[in-house]
Nucleic acid binder design. Structure first.
Lengths: 344, 344
DNA sequence: ATGAAAGCGCTAACAG
DNA sequence: CTGTTAGCGCTTTCAT
């Protein structure tokens, strides 16, 4: 591809040695070359349409100048902003981002990780839940630099960047309490995501302390479809509750869809709260009350940490917890007097 | 990274030559090696945690087994499905996808393209508008394999995969006509996107033929924010029209937001139609009437075409136009009797 | 300031 | 079936 014009071709045209071309074209050693020669080489390079071969360079320098980013689901709108944050930080520093979308499938996750490792990424930003729990310690032992974004992973000593889930849940519970809700449901995500666990536990605890009864139901994936299914089930059981808090906005969206299909009004019949403030959450019908998580900042911070780890050669176990805030929109209102949901 | 265990280490442990290791570990030449040796090599490789160096391999084979994908804006939800389509096709065939989000910035676009070329991608799927119009012919002349996805680019002889914009617009105009709309506005996207131009032209023509008056206004970017701005302007002019058709769903979303802020009801006071059926379009308030474009299929088809081009070595100029369909939701209704919008 | 030579890790010819 | 040899394109000593 891109025709085989190599550094040797440029050298010949410029009438110098290949090594000189290399020096003339790279910022650092450029000082060692006479300005005159630099100009000549650059002219020759442009004339030939020379494009340096990054793989050959990497092989020689053993620096790939790439970082791998693994995410569980690109179609979940919380990730594009995170990725943007990562790229905005890394690109100006010369790093290319290799994105691996595992589509939530463990098999793909392993394949993707292998592919990244074979490409000798200089570091990893891991935003997947990682089904293979043995993987992370293994990577760490091999000396692979990495940062965990958004999703923690037990006791592996990699840096971790997340939103402050616990305090987000606290804000939600406070809101629900003030609105008079005393019986709520928490739609939890799959337990192998650390955020799902954290949010569930925080919710249960905070509700208990506030004197709110909190029933927990679990969705099998963090998608609107699963949120909808879970809510369908719930409504068919004719339980009494006045608000639903979902582990993320996608699940909450599914709840909204289910409500609509059951001809229940949100928020009058049922308040709904999500988590993340994903793009378009404001545009749902009704706009979703949720916790704003600084998605792009999580990306930026992860990238910064990884960058520093690569530079320093150290892999300190930092925990960065970014502040979150409550965003109240149309999906919440005071609890109805005659507590409880009536499915049709 | 990943410790320096090379093919030579494996060779030593297995008591064979490096070349034999290479043969034993690669599917194709594996047949040339005795089963016994294969086993021994594999054992040694696993014991050492050997990870082949893809860059060294690529350097030798001059096949990077990567394809570059350039998109203008990852946060536009139409792209993740396209990317998924691409990866679903390419990954099983051994190709890794290098994603380059140009964020709509021409400078980034150039940098991203350079980075991809330096990494010697085996091919390119280009979904950006490409500000540098000289770039594409240049790439073509250099023999770079590429496929254009969704966004055409004049007369460059690369294959192109898109939705059938023209017939989509026709369906919309037919719907609006039936609903009694006789005065509409088309919110066009930036003119350097081929889809923007196609849709605008089709809209103007179809309206003319249907006897509908169509005013065109232009947004400076394909974002909800710009759609909102444009609609604000429009409403401040107190023009008479009963429906808005936007070049894509993001612009339409902006229109919905503007309407809401101006306390105009959609669809009663104003019908709104988008284009693309992006994820979550059904969840807007109200659900958006739009044209469903097979986003994932566009990705799959682009990938297939690129793959075939890489395999065959040829770069035929195909045009694949995927069928689209009308999705009617809550944002459209019969035109009000007293034609026209009244901004407050 | 420039050239010569070596080698990053791998695979493909060519022997044997 | 396996070993030898060479070289992909680049950067980096080490000389000069």
């Amino acid at each position: 591809m891109t025709k085989a014009v190599t550094i040797a071709d440029v050298a010949k045209l410029a009438g110098v040695h290949a090594a000189t071309v290399s020096r003339a074209l790279n910022p650092a050693p450029q000082a060692q070359v006479s300005p005159e020669t630099v100009r000549r080489v650059q002219k020759a390079a442009k004339a030939l349409g020379y494009v340096p071969n990054a793989m050959a360079r990497s092989l020689r320098t053993s620096l790939s100048m790439t970082v791998g980013v693994t995410i569980p689901d690109l179609t979940n709108p919380i990730f594009p902003p995170m990725i943007r944050g990562i790229e905005n930080f890394l690109a100006p520093r010369g790093y290319t981002t290799l994105l691996a979308d595992t589509d939530g499938r463990p098999a793909l996750e392993k394949a993707a990780m292998t592919s990244l490792l074979e490409r000798r990424v200089d570091g990893l930003i891991i935003a997947t839940g990682l089904h293979d729990h043995a993987l992370l310690p293994k990577l760490f032992d091999q000396g692979v630099r990495a940062v965990l974004a958004n999703r923690g992973a037990g006791k592996v000593p990699y840096p971790l960047v997340t939103g402050d889930d616990r305090s987000g849940i606290l804000m939600i519970v406070e809101l629900l309490y003030k609105l008079g809700h005393r019986s709520v449901v928490h739609v939890a995500g799959p337990d192998n995501f650390s955020t799902s666990r954290t949010r569930r536990e925080a919710m249960v605890q905070a509700c208990a302390e506030a004197g709110i009864s909190c029933k927990v139901v679990s969705a099998s994936a963090l998608t609107a479809e699963d949120g909808e299914k879970v809510m369908d089930d719930l409504l068919s059981q004719r339980q009494n509750f006045t608000a639903v808090q979902a582990s993320n906005d996608l699940l909450a969206l599914g709840v909204l869809r289910s409500l609509r299909r059951h001809r229940l009004r949100c928020p009058e019949d049922m308040s709904v709260v999500g988590f993340n403030d994903m793009p378009f959450a404001q545009d749902f019908s009704p706009g979703l009350t949720t916790i704003r998580v600084p998605l792009e900042d999580i990306g930026t911070e992860s990238a910064r940490l990884l960058f520093e780890s690569i530079q320093s050669g150290k892999n300190d176990s930092v925990l960065v917890r970014l502040p979150v805030s409550l965003v109240v929109r149309g999906s919440t209102c005071p609890a109805p007097k005659n507590k409880g949901a009536q499915a049709t």
